[in-house]
């Protein structure tokens, strides 16, 4: 990896993601405004924005970055291969560009969501992260500086959205490497194991006296504890340092696995109809 190749990849990737993201977000905002106005008009004949709110915009952002992280990886790998850039550089810059966009998105969420919610009395300014790590108003209630509380949520929002992007990247890396048959098998496993495999395993193990549900519940409780989530913490306050560290660690592990998968992957161009 050279400074030039990394920078070039990174710039190209950020431009590609951010444009799509801005488009999507603007579309979502405009749609929300129009739908609320229409709904209010339908209810009481007034075109108002009462009830408008964008709670859990951080969750939506995480979902978007999951999709975009997955959607763009193949393109970034291929663009790198087309321009003398190694797989490692393409992947590392993809991770960096996704992190940058996550931070930008978290900033957008932190600023825009409260602004939109303030358009209406009934709008609520609450992120999904607040359900997990405690509400902003809870920390302010106990005397924490409002600026510090918001910075902390911005950081956690960035990390959680970035983690979602990394999950998308990991999936995309697997699909990039796998053959057509492998891709089909992988997809079937993802779809059918939770839907059928788990219930079948649960029933089968129950006959042998093993309660799979309670094992899984214990497992997920431990995961929640590892991520410092509030409701296993005995308080409305989650453990941010632990949560942030675990998110970063998980992202790094995913990035490493993705690198192992793509480092020797053949460039797979997108199909063009008619070719």
């Amino acid at each position: 990896m050279t400074k030039h190749s990394f920078t070039a990849s990174y710039k190209y990737q950020v431009r590609r993601i951010i444009f799509m993201l801005i488009l999507t977000l603007c579309a979502a905002l405009v749609a929300e405004i129009i739908l609320v106005a229409i709904a209010n008009y339908g209810i009481d004949g007034r075109l108002t924005l009462e009830g408008i709110g964008f709670p859990c915009l951080d969750a939506l952002s995480g979902l978007m970055l999951f999709i975009y992280g997955a959607y763009f990886l193949a393109e970034f790998m291929n663009a790198g291969a087309a321009n003398g850039v190694s797989r490692t550089t393409s992947l590392v810059s993809a991770i960096a560009s996704n992190f940058t966009v996550s931070a930008a998105l978290a900033l957008f969420v932190s600023v825009v969501s409260p602004l939109i919610n303030s358009l209406s009395d009934s709008g609520s300014d609450i992120f999904l992260l607040e359900f997990i790590y405690g509400e902003k108003k809870f920390f302010e209630f106990y005397g924490e500086n409002a600026f510090v509380v918001r910075i902390r949520f911005f950081i956690m929002c960035t990390l959680s959205v970035f983690l979602c992007a990394m999950v998308g990247i990991l999936f995309a890396a697997a699909f990039y490497k796998l053959s057509r048959v492998g891709t089909v098998i992988f997809t079937l496993i993802i779809v059918f194991v939770p839907a059928f495999g788990y219930p079948m395993a649960s029933i089968s193990l129950a006959k042998r006296g093993i309660d799979l549900d309670s094992c899984m519940k214990k497992f997920f409780t431990e995961v929640e504890r590892a991520f410092g989530m509030a409701h296993v913490n005995g308080s409305q306050a989650g453990d941010f340092v632990r949560g942030g560290f675990m998110m970063l660690l998980t992202a790094v592990v995913m990035g490493f696995i993705a690198w192992l998968i793509v480092r020797r992957a053949n460039a797979k161009p997108a199909a063009i109809r008619g070719d």
Binding site: F138, F139, Y142, E144, N145, V148, I151, R152, I155, N233, G234, S235, A237, D239, F240, V241
Partner: peptide, 16 residues
């Protein structure tokens, strides 16, 4: 610096 400020005091939990 922002990260450090954000790791500010978190309300303590009393043992049950």
């Amino acid at each position: 610096a922002l990260c450090l400020t954000a790791c500010a005091d978190i309300p303590e939990v009393r043992e049950s």
